[in-house]
Amino acid sequence: MSKDINKSARIKLLISRIVVYGILIFLAFLCLFFFYLMIINSTRSNAQLKTGFTVIPGGHMLENFINAWNDGSINIPVGMKNSFIVSSMCAVLTTYFSALTAYGTYVYDFKYKSLVHIFILAIMMIPAQVSAVGFIQLAYKYNLTNKLWMLIIPSIAAPSVYFYMRQYLEATLPLEMVEAARIDGSSEFRIFNTIVLPIMKPAVAVQMIFSFVGSWNNYFMPALLLNKAEKKTVPIMIAQLRSADYSKFDMGKVYMLMLMAILPVMVIYIILSKSIIKGVTSGSVKG
């Protein structure tokens, strides 16, 4: 009797496992399928692309790459250089200054300390688009369009990164450590740079990745600010592909350009996926 129940329970478990793995494989397929098509199509010549659907590579990858790299209207090497400058500078500045600000409100006692903390939390949810109108107006007024630093400097004030850093400090930095360093005669600034920052390395690393990816993919603001060909970032160029007369294009080249646009982030993700996925949860909900 009990053996029968065991058996039926085991069959039930087996069936539900098959269903669950089926769903998981289907969703994983859905996530990879479109990117797989993109990679395959980036290896096919325009003529091959016109002949029909296939999942087999076409052998024209290098040719498409050379064509994409030397394209006359979409200057992807310059775009990638600009995107790289903006994204890496943003990643460094946003993490350093957020950590500094978080340290400032965590370790020191000053009059409006809790007010400052609450203020930063309150502004966290305000969408970037709300300041866009004034920002663009000022940029045109003072001739600051097409300046990459206009995209870089604002990253110093990043409320959500501050929030993450603050939580990390609360969890990891014993105040006795700061006190001990003071007794050793270290200056306040030196304590932060040589003792606190190394402790915050994991948090800094995670936020650097997210910040880099966020700036690399950012489209709204850069598109409003940059209109000179030599200053454009990658997402603007990709959107330009869409607005150009579609039929004129060598589609093999178009797929290659898209592949190049997402490749840097893909490489980062493949190497660091474990810590990125961990980072998704650690910063979002308090506690």
């Binding site: 990658v234 997402p235 959107a239 869409r242 898209m258 997402i262 982030v265």
Partner: peptide
């Protein structure tokens, strides 16, 4: 993590 504009263009 994919660039939304590139995903959309794709």
């Amino acid at each position: 993590l994919i660039m939304a504009s590139a995903f959309s263009m794709l």
